[in-house]
């Protein structure tokens, strides 16, 4: 284990995790809005925002799937030390992290059960750019209009069609995060 594995967590976990969670919750409650989450310094290729999301949400109870370039020894060690989340295959995970093309295919992830739709995965998607423009969003949490630079639209339309089952998404870029719950329709 390298010394840098031990670094990059929250300096003061109770307050920093609370602040980061509030931003993530605002993002999930208001799809298409972008919020800043700071305090985490994970190893490459993770962004500070995705690192913060892992610190806030993952622990030994949450199997995590690392997709593509994120599945490297430095990230595995960092995740193991800071969260204790077990690494899992897509079909067994509660959280997955990677770039959009690395996370595919989406039908590999649990979408919940009809009687327990909450038992579904949350995908943390690393993005090159994240802007409040592009695909139009409609649904709970959106007063009139919202737009988000999604990597595509078809997959999210198919996901929304599963409602109330389905996947939920966090999009991260640098220290910024946005979210797309299953309840949002994408045009």
């Amino acid at each position: 284990m390298q010394a840098h594995t031990l670094q990059g967590g929250f300096a003061h976990p109770p307050s920093e995790a609370a602040q980061a969670f509030r931003r993530i919750m605002e993002a999930m409650a208001r799809p298409g809005t972008i919020h800043s989450v700071t305090g985490a310094a994970p190893p490459a290729p993770l962004s500070p925002a995705s690192g913060a999301a892992l610190l806030v949400l993952c622990d030994p109870d949450t199997p995590l799937h690392l997709a593509g370039a994120a599945d490297c020894p430095a990230v595995r060690d960092w995740v193991a030390f800071h969260t204790g989340a077990p690494i899992a295959a897509p079909g067994d995970c509660l959280f997955a992290l990677g770039r959009w093309d690395e996370l595919a295919p989406l039908d590999a992830y649990p979408t919940g059960r009809a009687d327990y739709p909450d038992r579904s995965a949350t995908l943390i998607v690393e993005m090159d750019r994240l802007e409040e423009e592009g695909a139009r969003l409609r649904g709970p949490g959106i007063e009139t209009r919202a737009h988000l630079s999604l990597p595509e639209t078809g997959a999210f339309r198919a996901n929304a069609a599963l409602y109330p089952m389905g996947l939920d998404f966090l999009f991260t870029c640098g220290d910024r995060v946005a979210a797309l719950p299953r309840s949002t329709e994408v045009f």
């Binding site: 976990p13 919750m25 993952c58 299953r182």
Partner: peptide, 20 residues
């Protein structure tokens, strides 16, 4: 902190499935 993480995960799912 672990209890708060558990509750926070439930809150995010609750917001994603309003009323459930």
């Amino acid at each position: 902190e672990q209890t708060k993480r558990m509750i926070r995960r439930a809150l995010l799912k609750a917001l994603a499935i309003p009323g459930y």
